[in-house]
Amino acid sequence: MNPPASPADLDRIKEEISDDFDEELELELEDARLEDVEGIDDEEFDLEARRSRRLDRRVYFRELFRLQHELVRLQDWVVHQGLRVVVIFEGRDSAGKGGAIKRITQRLNPRVCRVAALPAPNERERTQWYFQRYVQHLPAAGEIVLFDRSWYNRAGVERVMGFCSEDDVEEFFRSVPEFERMLARSGIILIKYWFSITDEEQQFRFALRIHDPLKQWKLSPMDVESRRMWEDYTRAKEAMLDRTHIPEAPWWVVAADDKKRARLNCIDHLLSQFAYTDVPKAAVHLPDRVRHDDYIRHPVPDEMYVSAKF
């Protein structure tokens, strides 16, 4: 039996929980800071109207932490049931996929829930069966894999940027429904999200990246080119959704012009796809530490310590 926590211990516990929540607060303060960077044209983007539409921070945090608690319950249930779950996140550049993924994984065990974000294929991978490099990232029992972009690259950036032929695209559209049905037959639960933003919203987010030195690394030459080819990407997206929306793995569209609402709506919908319940757990009791008379803890030399500047 573990002894009851003392008042001092309870205070420490509260501090630790507060520090944990501060991690999310830091991310949100970063988002807020982006709208105040120099160089953004207030008149062009109507920043005051954008700020007035923001979801109340208290509401956002309350709902986010509630949903993250449910994600932990879902994680435990997936492990207990030995399920294999794949969640695909697709959308235009700057649509907010990464932010949603970050909030999903934030409180979860990385050994259970991991992210697959594959780089461009190398020379060898280009000669393989198209789906081959994705297959190796599929989950084993009790695992959740979030694909930050996926095999749907072929229907999007590869097609629009001319990295593959139209014959390749047509073969992809013939193959992907069968590939995903095969995954479903094998017992993998496949959920697909498209994060949808407007032309104006992407323009605004790109402008933020241009003027913010902490975000400029996110704006690649490919991203810049994608702005010019907005309509080509739209046609490619429409064809993709039309030809790969199947009963075994339907597409779900997340309205993502408002990042906070998009995150909450996506997580809430993801949770709704599972009839998860609480998993029975054995009580955990901390044993007394074993102490030996001959144990001596040797001091660490001062020069080995990191400077305490803060």
Rank of each mutant, 00 (worst) to 15 (best):
T198G: 12
H137G: 06
D223A: 05
H298I: 10
R33N: 08
L29I: 09
P250N: 08
Y233V: 05
R243P: 02
D278P: 01
L10Q: 11
R73T: 14
N153A: 15
L34K: 08
V112C: 04
L67I: 01
D199Y: 15
K215V: 05
H292G: 07
F274V: 01
S52Q: 15
A249Y: 00
R50P: 01
F61D: 01
V85M: 02
D257L: 03
A155T: 02
E70P: 04
F310S: 14
S150W: 00
E16F: 14
V78H: 03
R174T: 09
D76V: 03
V135Q: 00
G96Q: 02
K14F: 11
I210G: 04
K259D: 06
V290Y: 06
R289Q: 10
R58V: 13
R12K: 15
F89T: 05
L146Q: 05
E231P: 06
E166K: 05
I101L: 09
Q106E: 15
A32M: 13
R73H: 15
F61Y: 15
L67A: 02
V253T: 15
V85E: 00
A8N: 08
N153I: 10
F89I: 02
P139K: 02
L138W: 02
N265R: 05
Q128G: 00
L190Q: 04
E248Y: 08
H211V: 09
